[in-house]
Design a protein around this nucleic acid. Structure first.
Length: 280
DNA sequence: AGCATTACCCGCACGC
DNA sequence: TGCGTGCGGGTAATGC
């Protein structure tokens, strides 16, 4: 699915508009149509309809990997794109309709916000209690309160494989499989290393690498992978993700693939070595 | 009890 | 045609 950089890009496009589509701030919802029942996680369809219809869109933002759309009357729409979701604004003049629409909001001006999601894993919540949906999310990687002091103590208080920990949304919110790979490679850390046993220098490098990779990802409008194209081109700058057997751009060693927590994991055996033993 | 890991599951499309 | 794989995450089971 889209990760932080892709979700951020989509949120910005919905808010500010693109050359092809207008933003949705200020639009009024005239109708909500659910095409695939399970896409609506909360509440039931009738309640969702009555909560959203007639409301004006006040803001669009991101919470972890959730898109947050604020409506007037203290109501929020949360959308999680999971693996294959995408959001597009379709104007009457801009009829390029995607093939797997699971839900859509129709606005009073005739334009629509469509939720396209081939794999049907994406979910929508409409609620006046945001904490029920995003309350358990960990700190955002760009949060100013996430200093190296905070980050290092967070890591030292856990004993988990560093890659699995970075993917845990209650620990840090927004990291996914791609950006985790790229961050660990840039920081020179093997994905299965124990988080609490990283050196302070490694923790410092890791936080910097996470922010660097996410910033570049956002700058390039995210990554476009598989058949789900979203307009970004960060995929052309991956150093390890999806590059099994190809040379590491830093040292030329063949990129290796393994499994960490049931998920494909790529790394450079030379740049990301095993932990050095402390024994003499 | 609480934490960490593993297995399985959920729809679909694509490459080999 | 069949099989493995995947920008994610929830649940259940197991082990420490």
């Amino acid at each position: 699915m889209p990760e932080l950089a892709e979700v951020e890009t989509i949120a910005r496009n919905l808010r500010d508009g693109t050359t092809n589509s207008p933003g949705i701030i200020g639009k009024t919802i005239r109708d909500l149509v659910i095409h695939w029942h399970k896409t609506l996680a909360m509440p039931d369809e009738a309640s969702a309809h009555s909560r959203a219809v007639g409301k004006e869109i006040l803001s669009v933002g991101r919470r972890g990997k959730f898109i947050q759309i604020e409506l007037d009357g203290n109501c929020y729409i949360f959308i999680h794109l999971r693996m294959s979701g995408d959001l597009q604004v379709i104007s009457p003049s801009n009829e390029k309709i995607p093939g797997h629409i699971r839900a859509e909001w129709v606005f009073s001006d005739g334009s629509r916000l469509v939720f396209n999601d081939p794999r049907k894993f994406g979910r929508i919540w409409i609620t006046d209690l945001p904490q029920d949906v995003v309350g358990k999310l960990g700190i955002d990687p760009f949060d100013e309160q996430l200093t190296i002091i905070t980050f290092s103590s967070m890591l030292m208080n856990k004993h988990r494989q560093i890659k699995a920990l970075l993917l845990d949304q209650t620990f840090l919110s927004g990291m996914g499989n791609i950006y985790t790979h790229e961050s660990l490679h840039r920081a020179g850390i093997l994905p299965r290393r124990d988080s609490s046993r990283l050196t302070v220098d490694e923790m410092d490098k890791l936080l910097g690498a996470i922010r660097e990779v996410l910033t570049e990802g956002i700058m390039r409008n995210g990554s476009s992978i598989d058949w789900v194209y979203r307009g970004g081109d960060f995929q052309n700058y991956f150093r390890v993700y999806g590059r099994k057997d190809q040379p590491c751009p830093v040292c030329g060693t063949a990129i290796a693939r393994t499994l960490v927590g049931q998920r494909g994991t790529h790394y450079c055996p030379h740049c990301q070595p095993e932990e050095r033993s402390n024994e003499m």
